[in-house]
Nucleic acid binder design. Structure first.
Length: 424
RNA sequence: GGAGGAAUGGGUGAGUGGUUGAAACCGGCGGUCUUGAAAACCGUUUGCGGGGUGACUCGCACGGGGGUUCGAAUCCCUCUUCCUCCGCCA
């Protein structure tokens, strides 16, 4: 959510910047609604002040034993008028809030202007894709042949786009989770948290998934519980409606959680394998910072996520998303893309964003700054998507004989150097 | 799931219909005193939203929502959360 007075006072400049997004918000109504809302508020509040004044006079009159019928009648009439005016205020305010909360964040000045993902700008490329003296297979073939990934039974148990891992497949997933959490907590200074995997509407509003993107989420029937689409939601909301001590910043948290996404609107995309599924595992990095530090912290957070890929010796590149490819709440986003031989290309494995005060304003996350309190900046990024890291390892470390080599860094976690085929 | 109890400002906690946006204490901030610090003393210390260049002013908020009343922290309804006891349970 935008700062209202800033938005009002810099309307043309902000509107121009917002127009560079892929779904630019319609702002035509803003000025009219804003003005109508303020006029309505002024009107009712003046009347309320009159009522307060009149009814304060009644008490003393009664105490003196005088008659107050006239005053009572006067207040009663004004109250009736207020009731109808309040309706108007409520109606215009609701419209205004809907408009305001539906406006995406302003892209930071360093974000390249562009239409879509094609206009994203590569900022780094690390590692060389391996060359194979055989045709590398995609992970869905490898997973089946190795007996570690069982998509058919997952579909039976639940449905399409779910995964069942067996044996070394399950252990690899678990090893990756532990490895990532260990690196971030021991080497990068993050504190581990284990949050609820179900959240309420208020939390989803705080991080910006609601009200606009509810079709992407799973909801529990008859209850205000939603399956989390990312740990960003419960972890960022840890400090919802709280004021943090200024000295406590920056706060760096990391969390492992499963993530649940309905993937509505993604039909036909990444249908094979487990690149795009309804449930996947992720280790998430979340930061709360002072405004002046947030961009430096974004660089560090992105580097922390990249470090996992470096340690696993997986080739990757990092791009800065163009204005046309950014998410709703973000002011700046880096995507980290890992090399996948099965796709013969780079595929997103982490998305690292600075939301500035956009989420903090929605969620009421403040910090003490001298005598005043102000909104913190929030950031987050995948560190990393575990399922896609699993894919990257299986595909990049496959060998001619059908086995998969375990990356050096994971061997202590797996007690194996090679994943060998087994019967499913 | 059943039975009781509770929810007030950063914290403790008073307040059961009319200058109570809220006593008191603690904490925080500023000051006096002091070589410095402590102590003592004085002052100050909620948020959101309107109006005004500004001094300032108005409205709303005592867990959330609704109601009674000229007037609600205080009375009623409802929801939520927490505590105690019982039941169930990994």
């Amino acid at each position: 959510m935008h700062d209202l007075s800033y938005f009002r006072n810099h309307f043309d400049r902000v509107a121009e910047r917002l127009a560079t997004r892929s779904n630019p918000p319609s702002l035509e109504q803003f000025r009219d609604l804003d003005q109508r809302r303020r006029a309505a508020i002024t009107q009712t509040e003046q009347l309320k002040a009159a009522v307060n004044k009149a009814s304060a006079e009644i008490g003393p009159l009664l105490r003196e034993g005088k008659d107050a019928t006239a005053q009572r009648e006067q207040v009663r009439v004004m109250k009736a008028e207020i009731a109808s005016l309040d309706e108007q205020v409520k109606s215009v305010d609701t419209q205004f809030q809907e408009l305001l909360t539906g406006i995406p964040n302003t892209p930071h000045e360093s974000v390249p202007v562009g239409k879509d993902a094609d206009d994203n700008v590569e900022v780094r490329r690390v590692g060389e894709p391996r060359t194979y003296d055989f045709a590398p297979k995609p992970h869905w073939d490898l997973g089946l042949e190795l007996g570690i990934l069982d998509l058919e039974r997952a579909a039976k148990i639940t449905g399409a786009r779910f995964a069942l891992y067996w044996d070394m497949g399950a252990k690899l997933e678990r090893a990756l989770i532990n490895f990532m959490l260990d690196v971030h907590t021991r080497e990068h200074g993050y504190t581990e948290v284990l949050p609820p995997f179900l959240v309420n509407s208020q939390s989803l509003f705080g991080t910006g998934q609601l009200p606009k993107f509810k079709e992407d989420l799973f909801k529990c029937e008859g209850q205000d519980f939603w399956l989390i689409p990312t740990a960003e939601v419960p972890v960022t909301n840890i400090y919802r409606d709280e004021t943090l001590e200024g000295d406590a910043l920056p706060i760096r948290l990391c969390a492992y959680t499963p993530c649940f996404r309905s993937e509505a609107g993604s039909y036909g995309r990444d249908v094979r394998g487990i690149i795009r599924v309804h449930q996947f595992q992720k280790v998430e990095l979340v930061k709360f910072t002072r405004p002046e530090d947030s961009y430096a912290e974004l660089e560090k957070l992105t580097a922390d996520a990249e470090d996992i890929l470096r340690r696993l010796c997986l080739p990757f590149r990092t791009v800065v998303l163009s204005t046309g490819d950014m998410g709703f709440s973000s002011a700046k986003t880096y995507d980290i893309e890992v090399w996948l031989p099965g796709q013969n290309g780079y595929k997103e494995i982490s998305s690292c964003s600075n939301f500035e005060a956009f989420q903090a304003r929605r969620a009421g996350i403040r910090f003490k700054s001298g005598k005043k309190s102000e909104f913190a900046h929030t950031l987050n990024g995948s560190g990393l998507a575990v399922g896609r890291t699993w894919v990257a390892i299986v595909e990049n470390y496959q060998q001619k004989d059908g086995t998969v080599l375990v990356p050096e860094a994971l061997r202590p976690y797996l007690n194996e150097e090679v994943i060998r085929p087994r019967k499913l």
